[in-house]
Simulated assay, not measured.
Amino acid sequence: MIRKLTEKDHQLVLAFLSEEPSINLFIIGDIEVFGYSSEFQEIWAEFDEQNTIKAVLLRFHQSFIPYAKGEFDTEGFVSIMKRYNQPVLLSGKSEIVEKFEAFDELTLGKKQVTFFAECLTDEFLGAEDHDIAIKQATIEDVDQIIKLRESIEEFHVRSDAREIFVQAMESNTARTYYTVDHGVITSCVSTTAENSMSAMIVGVCTRKDYRRQGLATAIMQKLFKDVLEEGKTLCLFYDNPEAGSIYKKLGFKDIGKWTMYRG
């Protein structure tokens, strides 16, 4: 049986999702921030005969994320997604979301597969460099951080990046640490989709003139220490094996693959 969840199901669904807090950080975060009665967000779950959750489907605006631990009613979830605009914006653990490729009635967007890694320890970071001053960003720093990201060739900065950045900071689902030299931000790293159990690392960058000075390592050390001391796991996506080898030296381990279908 599939039914829409309400606030009464909160502890039950969080217990189900918390067994893989990194994989489920988007679902957990959206539930904690936006709840069960928002116009742009809905959560459904499939239950077995013992009223135990088998699978969950989150809708956030036009994006869907399913999660299950075994076989689930894929067709039932498809019937829900068909009610909304096509193509379907779908993402999630690869072995789960790729089951939906078999349904011709769903129009899936362009497929992208990335590695998904998590870190539970800061023991591989080395000693902190206490000569490097690190600050935590406030709303006043947003414009300069966006400009720094725009200067990085590998980054694609969306037109609504500032609005998303501010909203995330105000809802405490993101934080950014940075270094500064004479009023100019030189390096930064952020979390996103941060919730009570996990946080994703994004936006690691250093201004070209300040690279190879240990700035990114220093702010990563600070971020790791603070997030892990709060009892959260750290996770990130990567699709470049070279980048993956760097993250693994910092203590990250692959826990699966993440597939996205985008229009």
Score class of each variant (00 low, 15 high):
Glu19Thr: 15
Glu20Gln: 13
Ser22Thr: 05
Ile23Ala: 09
Asn24Gln: 09
Ile27Lys: 00
Ile27Leu: 08
Gly29Gln: 14
Gly29Phe: 02
Ile31Phe: 11
Val33Lys: 15
Phe34Asn: 13
Gly35Pro: 05
Tyr36Ile: 11
Phe40Glu: 08
Glu42Lys: 15
Ile43Val: 15
Trp44Ala: 00
Trp44Ile: 11
Glu46Pro: 09
Phe47Gln: 08
Phe47Lys: 04
Asp48Cys: 11
Gln50Pro: 01
Val56Arg: 01
Leu57Ile: 07
Leu58Tyr: 04
Arg59Gln: 08
Arg59Lys: 15
Phe60Thr: 09
Phe60Ala: 11
Gln62Gly: 06
Ser63Asn: 10
Phe64Asp: 01
Ile65His: 01
Pro66Arg: 06
Pro66Val: 06
Pro66His: 03
Ala68Trp: 03
Ala68Tyr: 01
Lys69Met: 08
Lys69Asp: 03
Gly70Pro: 02
Glu71His: 12
Glu71Cys: 11
Phe72Tyr: 13
Asp73Pro: 06
Asp73Ser: 13
Gly76Lys: 10
Phe77Pro: 03
Phe77Asn: 04
Val78Trp: 01
Ser79Pro: 05
Ser79Glu: 15
Ser79Arg: 15
Ile80Lys: 07
Ile80Cys: 08
Ile80Arg: 07
Met81His: 03
Met81Lys: 04
Arg83Glu: 14
Arg83Val: 08
Tyr84Ile: 01
Gln86Tyr: 02
Pro87Leu: 10
Val88Tyr: 00
Leu89Ile: 13
Leu89Phe: 11
Ser91Cys: 12
Gly92Cys: 07
Gly92Trp: 03
Ile96Pro: 00
Ile96Phe: 05
Val97Trp: 04
Glu98His: 03
Phe100Val: 09
Ala102Thr: 09
Ala102Met: 10
Phe103Tyr: 15
Asp104Pro: 03
Asp104Leu: 12
Glu105Tyr: 05
Thr107His: 10
Gly109Met: 06
Lys110Val: 05
Lys111Glu: 13
Val113Gly: 00
Val113Cys: 00
Thr114Asp: 09
Ala117Gln: 02
